Amino acid sequence: MKNMLDKTDQVMLNILQNSLPLSVQPYKDIAQELGIEEDEVLKRIARLKSEGLIRRIGGIMNSSKLGFSSTLCAMSVPEDRIEATAELINQMTGVTHNYLREHHYNVWFTLTVRSQAEVKKQLKELEEVSGLKVISMPASKVYKINVSFDMEKQNEL
């Protein structure tokens, strides 16, 4: 990865993570800060997305303050049913993450929807369609951390 990112990429990634301008033309603002054209910023972002270094650019909302309910879920899915089960989960409204792990409970996902009743409804439907049990683990307390990768210091590693 070190060889794929030049200094401009590194600074741009730090801006995208930590100080994306809240303006009508955020990419133009970033370009001005970097001393390049807006088109170059957009090309760099597209390249980094295509290489898988950027998954998405977007806001992170506090779902509970917006009145939503969420839960972390785990399932024990037989190996030969993982892909089909993942497809079912990914079709559900409100699934934000879906992971495969090496554990008895090998499929994990988060579900965020309008109400606790909707959480229960969707998980019950998933259990009925998949024939598998879903373990729901709503947070009792949320500990938020700020994750930011200092891209300019990557060469020090």
Rank of each mutant, 00 (worst) to 15 (best):
K43N: 14
T96Y: 09
V41K: 03
S63M: 10
R81V: 01
A31W: 01
G59A: 14
G58Y: 11
T96W: 08
A84L: 13
M75A: 02
I45M: 02
Q32I: 10
L48V: 14
Y27Q: 02
L66T: 02
G58W: 09
I54K: 04
K43H: 10
G58K: 09
S19R: 13
I82F: 00
V11E: 09
T71P: 03
L48D: 07
P21R: 04
E118F: 02
N14D: 10
S115E: 04
Q116G: 08
G35D: 00
K28A: 12
T85W: 14
Q25G: 00
Q17V: 06
E37C: 03
I57D: 07
R56V: 13
E102L: 14
G59I: 14
Q32C: 05
T112H: 04
D9E: 08
R55D: 11
L16T: 01
D9F: 04
T93S: 09
Q91D: 15
T93K: 13
V41H: 08
V41F: 02
I60H: 13
R101S: 08
A46T: 11
R44W: 12
R114K: 12
G35H: 01
L20T: 05
A84R: 11
I30N: 00
E102M: 14
W108K: 10
S76E: 07
K49Y: 06
L66G: 05
E102G: 08
T93E: 08
A46M: 07
R101W: 09
T85G: 01
W108E: 14
S69H: 11
Y27A: 00
R114I: 10
L72K: 15
I45G: 02
I82R: 01
I57L: 15
L5W: 10
M75R: 04
L13I: 02
Q17N: 12
M61V: 11
E79Q: 13
R55T: 11
T112W: 01
L111I: 12
L48E: 13
V107Y: 01
E51S: 08
L72M: 14
G94R: 10
Q32V: 11
S64E: 15
L34R: 01
Y105P: 03
E118D: 13
I30W: 03
K7R: 14
R44E: 07
C73L: 04
R47D: 10
V95W: 04
A46K: 15
A46R: 13
C73G: 02
G52H: 09
L111K: 06
N62D: 15
P21D: 07
R44L: 04
G52N: 13
Y27G: 00
I54L: 07
W108V: 14
P21C: 05
N90G: 12
